[in-house]
């Protein structure tokens, strides 16, 4: 299935989860927030939350500057 991952259309296996999307990017989840269709998925739900065709996934990185 195709999902929009950080503005790129990528092909992920059917039934892929939020955790799989991070794996696809080669990211470890520390310091990241993942929003699926505009809503942040709590860390504990990353492996349980399945993506569907056309989902928009935004990976946000914590920044520290002030």
């Amino acid at each position: 299935m195709k999902v929009r991952l950080n503005d790129d259309i990528v092909e992920l296996a059917d039934g892929a989860t939020v955790a799989d999307a991070l794996d696809h990017l080669g990211y470890s989840p520390n310091g990241l927030a993942v929003a699926v269709d505009g809503e942040v998925v709590p860390r504990a739900a990353h492996r349980k939350t399945r993506l569907v065709e056309g989902t928009t996934v935004d990976v946000l990185s914590a920044v520290q500057g002030g």
Binding site: S28, N30, G31, L32, A33, V40, P42, R43, S61, A62, V63, Q64, G65, G66
Partner: peptide
């Protein structure tokens, strides 16, 4: 609830390191 823990040390630069 947004960021349960910080990124690994050195992963995210500060403004002093990366600019703003």
């Amino acid at each position: 609830d947004l960021y349960p823990e910080p990124p690994p040390p050195g992963m995210v630069p500060s403004c002093a390191e990366g600019g703003v």
